[in-house]
Computed example of a mutant assay.
Amino acid sequence: RAWLDGYTVEKPQLFYLREKNTGYYLRKKGNNEYGITPHYSNDYDEKYMHYKFTQQEIDSMQTGSYELVPVEDGE
């Protein structure tokens, strides 16, 4: 409805979380379950695991040695 009325909705910036020492990426596996992987995407993993985090999600986590890698549009 907002679009019909001329409003636009800004998408939140998404980030990958990459461990600074190993270069591995954090992934969400399920209800408050996380794992790590040397890559952040392939067809199988993208369907079942999630690698992209919003700033709000990151703020609620203890990210420690993870760095934020911005997700580019279209990824």
Rank of each mutant, 00 (worst) to 15 (best):
Arg1Gln: 03
Ala2Gly: 14
Ala2Met: 05
Trp3Tyr: 10
Leu4Asp: 09
Leu4Asn: 11
Asp5Ser: 13
Gly6Pro: 05
Gly6Val: 06
Gly6His: 04
Gly6Met: 06
Thr8Val: 12
Thr8Pro: 01
Thr8Asn: 09
Val9Asp: 11
Val9Gln: 11
Val9Ile: 05
Glu10Phe: 12
Glu10Pro: 03
Glu10Tyr: 07
Lys11Cys: 05
Lys11Tyr: 07
Gln13Leu: 03
Gln13Val: 06
Phe15Thr: 02
Phe15Asp: 03
Phe15Val: 08
Tyr16Asp: 07
Leu17Arg: 09
Leu17His: 08
Arg18Thr: 02
Arg18Glu: 02
Arg18Ala: 07
Glu19Met: 04
Glu19Gln: 14
Lys20Arg: 13
Lys20Pro: 01
Asn21Gly: 05
Asn21His: 09
Asn21Gln: 12
Thr22Tyr: 03
Gly23Pro: 03
Gly23Asn: 08
Tyr24Ile: 00
Tyr24Gln: 06
Tyr25Asp: 08
Tyr25Gln: 09
Tyr25Glu: 06
Tyr25Val: 02
Leu26Ala: 12
Leu26Pro: 00
Arg27Trp: 07
Arg27Asp: 00
Lys28Met: 10
Asn31Gly: 02
Asn31Trp: 08
Asn31Asp: 10
Asn31Val: 04
Asn31Lys: 12
Asn32Ala: 11
Asn32Asp: 09
Glu33Ile: 11
Tyr34Trp: 14
Tyr34Cys: 04
Thr37His: 13
Pro38Gly: 05
His39Ile: 13
Tyr40Phe: 15
Tyr40Leu: 07
Ser41Pro: 03
Ser41Ile: 07
Asn42Lys: 08
Asn42Gly: 03
Asn42Cys: 15
Asp43Lys: 13
Asp43Trp: 08
Tyr44Thr: 10
Tyr44Ser: 11
Asp45Val: 08
Asp45Phe: 14
Asp45Pro: 02
Lys47Trp: 10
Tyr48Val: 15
Met49Thr: 06
Met49Asn: 14
Met49Asp: 03
Tyr51Cys: 10
Lys52Phe: 01
Phe53Asp: 02
Phe53Lys: 09
Phe53Met: 08
Thr54Met: 03
Gln55Arg: 06
Glu57Ser: 07
Ile58Ser: 07
Ile58Arg: 06
Asp59Leu: 13
Ser60Val: 01
Met61Gly: 09
Gln62His: 12
Thr63Asp: 00
Gly64Leu: 08
Gly64Gln: 14
Gly64His: 13
Gly64Pro: 03
Ser65Asp: 13
Ser65Trp: 00
Glu67Val: 15
Glu67Phe: 05
Leu68Asp: 02
Leu68Met: 15
Leu68Tyr: 03
Val69Leu: 15
Pro70Gln: 04
Pro70Glu: 07
Pro70Met: 10
Pro70Leu: 12
Val71Cys: 09
Val71Leu: 03
Val71Ser: 02
Glu72Ser: 05
Gly74Arg: 11
Gly74Glu: 10
Glu75Asp: 14
Glu75Ile: 07
